[in-house]
Simulated scan of single mutants.
Amino acid sequence: MFTGSIVALVTPMDVKGNVDRVSLKKLVEYHIASGTSAIVSVGTTGESATLDHKEHIDVIKQTVEYAAGRINVIAGTGANATAEAILLTKQVEKLGVVGCLTVTPYYNKPTQEGLYQHFKVIAENTSLPQILYNVPGRTGCDLKPETVAKLAKISNIVALKDATSDLARVYKTRKLVGDDFKLLSGDDVTFFEFMLLGGDGIISVSANVAAREMARICQLITAKRIKEARKINDTLDLLHNKLFIEPNPIPVKWACEKIGLIQNSTMRLPMTPLTNSSIPEVEKALKLAKLL
């Protein structure tokens, strides 16, 4: 369930900044057709920071309805207050999601004990499988491998999304958590190496526009057909980089519009459109990946 290419789905919006349901349905169909393993709805790439609670839950609900059991949906339910994360988790329990992606508390900068207690209490308040999400570059705190190992002993904490880009952690964390606990890359640039070192897949930004390619790479690595996988990934290498030329999800929403997956790349403030100087860079990457 938590392996392969999982897309960190963008949340499409119309020119007024309202959620674009037509484009959302189109995106879900695109990922079903492309072999994506699962969808993360309303994670960082889905602009969770600028959706209110009602919209947050509604986007997840709509995504599950459009999926109609044909692809698994994982709900982004992270918050920097434990009580808020529990509230979001409780609200998605009956929507049909297969699990939750819960980011480390941002801004607060809790200790390792604080992080342990945060995730432990969330897990104790739900039966849904939980994916820990560590992205220090955004949150200001770092979930250490030793803390992950403690959390992995809790039955419904089943996976880690690691967006540190620190490949040395893959082996260290795997040794601590064992083989059943899933390790997912959260960094497209290094995900290929992450999987070669024992990772189980990726929660991907690039998969928003290169869904078929990302799914195939993961399948080939799992089948030990590394040369074939590398050949595909080499065509995506520039894309992996240029989709982060400005803060995510600015470039990837522009790219989704450019290749016709969404109607426009509207975002809510404080996120602003892709700058003119970056447009040729992202366009070049799309062309190299044969997506344009």
Rank of each mutant, 00 (worst) to 15 (best):
K54G: 06
A229Q: 00
P280R: 02
D58M: 12
R268H: 05
K90R: 14
K287L: 13
R138F: 03
I259P: 03
I217T: 09
N18Q: 12
L239P: 01
N264A: 06
I131H: 01
D162L: 05
V282T: 04
L88S: 06
R21H: 12
K182H: 09
T139R: 05
N80T: 11
M214Y: 08
L87W: 13
S185F: 01
E47N: 07
L95Q: 11
T147D: 04
G114L: 11
Y107L: 14
V189N: 05
V73S: 05
K287T: 11
D52T: 07
T111K: 13
D20V: 04
T111A: 12
S37Q: 15
V135W: 00
H56I: 06
L236W: 04
S37A: 15
P249I: 03
A68D: 15
A163H: 09
F181K: 04
A211L: 10
M267G: 06
K90G: 10
N80W: 03
T126N: 07
T63I: 10
E228T: 03
A152E: 02
I250K: 04
L176P: 06
D180V: 11
K150R: 14
M267I: 05
N134F: 08
V28K: 09
A215F: 12
I202W: 06
I203S: 09
L269H: 09
V209K: 00
P105M: 14
A33V: 01
G186A: 10
I250H: 05
S48D: 00
G260Y: 07
L183Q: 10
K144W: 04
D52I: 00
G69C: 13
S204Q: 09
Y30T: 13
V189A: 14
S34T: 05
S5A: 15
A123N: 02
L160S: 09
M271F: 13
I232H: 04
T77Q: 03
V98H: 07
E113A: 14
V252T: 09
E113C: 00
T104Q: 01
S34E: 13
Q62I: 00
F119G: 02
H31P: 13
V121L: 08
N264V: 01
K284Y: 10
F194P: 02
E193N: 15
T139A: 13
V282R: 03
F2P: 06
P273I: 13
A159I: 06
A68Q: 12
R70Q: 15
I279F: 07
N233G: 12
M214P: 06
S278G: 00
F244E: 06
Y116K: 11
L269P: 14
I60Y: 10
I217R: 02
T139V: 15
V64G: 01
L27C: 08
C141M: 09
T89A: 13
L87F: 12
R230W: 09
M271V: 06
V40P: 04
S127E: 15
A33E: 15
I217P: 03
K287C: 07
A67K: 03
A81R: 00
T139K: 09
A229V: 08
I154H: 00
I250Q: 00
T89I: 10
K242D: 07
F192L: 05
V209Y: 03
E193I: 14
C141V: 14
M13K: 08
G17A: 05
R225E: 15
M271E: 02
T3Q: 14
P273V: 14
L51D: 02
A255Q: 13
A168P: 00
